[in-house]
Design a protein around this nucleic acid. Structure first.
Length: 436
RNA sequence: GUGGCCAUGGUGUAGUUGGUUAGCACGGCAGUCUGUGGAACUGCCAGCGAGGGUUCAAAUCCCUCUGGUCACCCCA
């Protein structure tokens, strides 16, 4: 825990801003977040997925064990918290799969009919340098199918991911699915030995990063973007040629299903993912087949994760999308949203009318008619100005005289024409005019 | 974590051989006009990202920090 002195030291500042890489989500942004979540919800729930939300904090060890100590997101980018009473550290969750598998085990979901289909929507945290489409707190939508090793799980996840992307307005032809298999622990071990041997032989022709990678995280040399490494990469052995019979059959069969279902894919022999728990199938969705393009989302199979974190032998498949990335692409493709604006506005003059305005507004709201008001202002001019700025079609005007007569003025803002209407007729009258 | 570029009211900006009180537009609030909007006019609000240094004098030059942005690393 920080001491009181440490906590107050910085408060001498004159102003505050959001921490680096984090942002306030304002009304215009919520239109996108809501739209994305609603589509995801509609589709995935219809296909039998249930929503789950795990805590923002987990024991740090869940990630070091599950995702891998040497991965960037756990080894270097995890937010760690030390608070009173816990041994060890808590971590702000850097990804969603390990917590969900933890919940699956902790809540004994393996006793339910398998597989378990879950989806989630929430924020995740990675302490990295912010950049386009990359924040320190960001939202992910993701889905997991846990409990079966049949390729049906992969097929479902991939199929639904595509339907989801299309629902957001992305054209079929723009969505690219990159696909690869990185085998199981057995065949990958054989492959890595070969890969290391090959890179050691070509040690002089590769970049310094790759020299480090081949030791720490060998698979990653395959997506090195340094030109220097291209010739060596070209001749490198690829894991697809080293898959054991089971992994090979699994992958072949997945490809057959995708072809049968008319889901185009690009076999990307260099696609490997940064999280240690992946086995066999890995995939990524982008909007451009250029490799440099930031991916919208990705996922894969993780057959050993449950075993590593909870000694439960259950396989799984999952996908996760970066919500901010989806948003940015939607904006770039001109998919705009407007918030609902009222078409009617109520203005008042005088104290009696002000009081009565509250009752009248409720009549509209009971009828689900969106009505604007600015009761805080007490001059007519300012109220009308606001109504005008909102672009409403009709304004109801209530004054001293109207209250006495139980009438109200209805003003057409386009023509400027006004007429007197009995107070008890306002709802049918406005419905007629708005064709409701 | 490494490197490049950047930082003036709420928003968009003017302002460098350092030199009056930092200018303009939009915006917000109020008024001209306590019963009529879209126009006009008037007044007000609000800024040199933070800290330090050089100097008689700093928005301007230097350093540190913070933040933004882009590339790398990595990833959603």
């Amino acid at each position: 825990m920080a001491s009181e002195k440490e906590l107050t030291q910085k408060t001498r500042k004159q102003s505050f801003q959001t921490p680096r890489g984090m942002k306030d989500i304002l009304a215009e942004d919520w239109l996108y977040y809501d739209f994305i979540l609603q589509n995801a919800k509609k589709i995935f729930e219809f296909y039998g997925f249930k929503r789950i939300e795990t805590p923002l904090l987990e024991e740090a060890e869940l990630f070091t064990k599950g995702v891998g100590k040497k991965t960037e997101i756990v080894g270097k980018e995890m937010y760690l918290l030390k608070t009173k009473g816990e041994q060890g550290f808590l971590a702000l969750r850097p990804e969603g799969t390990a917590p969900i598998v933890r919940a699956y085990i902790e809540k004994g979901m393996f006793n339910l009919p398998q597989p378990i289909k879950l989806y989630y929507f929430g924020s995740f945290f990675r302490h990295e340098k912010p950049q386009a489409g990359r924040y320190r707190q960001f939202y992910q939508f993701g889905a997991e199918i846990i409990g079966e090793d049949d390729i049906a799980s992969e097929v479902k996840i991939i199929m639904l991911s595509k339907i989801f992307l299309e629902s957001l307005g992305f054209a079929k032809k723009d969505i690219f699915l990159l696909l690869n298999s990185i085998g199981c622990s057995k065949c990958r071990a054989v492959y890595i030995r070969e890969l290391k041997k090959y890179y050691r032989k070509n040690n002089k022709q590769i970049c310094s990063d790759c020299r480090r990678r081949i030791q720490e995280n060998p698979l990653r040399v395959l997506d090195c973007k340094n030109e220097k490494c291209y010739p060596v990469k070209e001749g490198a052995p690829f894991i697809l040629d080293y898959l054991c019979t089971e992994c090979n059959n699994h992958f072949k069969s997945l490809l057959e299903y995708l072809e049968y279902l008319n889901i185009p894919y690009i076999l990307d022999k260099t696609l490997v993912r940064g999280l240690d728990y992946y086995t066999r199938t890995v995939f990524e969705f982008c909007l451009d087949d250029e490799k440099s393009k930031i991916s919208l989302g990705g996922g894969g199979r993780y057959d050993k994760l449950a075993e590593i974190i909870g000694r439960v032998k259950k396989p799984g498949v999952g996908v996760a999308f970066g919500v901010e990335r989806l948003m940015e692409e939607m904006i770039q493709r001109g998919k705009g949203f407007k918030s609902a604006k009222p078409e009617v506005f109520l203005v008042y003059i005088g104290e009696a009318a002000k009081k009565m305005s509250f009752k009248i507004l409720e009549q509209f709201r009971k009828e689900k008619i969106l009505i604007g008001e600015n009761l805080e202002k007490n001059n007519l001019r300012a109220q009308l100005k606001n109504a005008d700025r909102l672009g409403v079609k009709y304004v109801f005007m209530l004054g001293q005289q109207e209250v006495l007569d139980e009438m109200i003025i209805l003003k057409d803002m386009n023509s400027g024409l006004q007429e007197l209407i009995p107070l008890d007729k306002i709802i049918p009258e406005i419905k007629k005019r708005l064709n409701k």
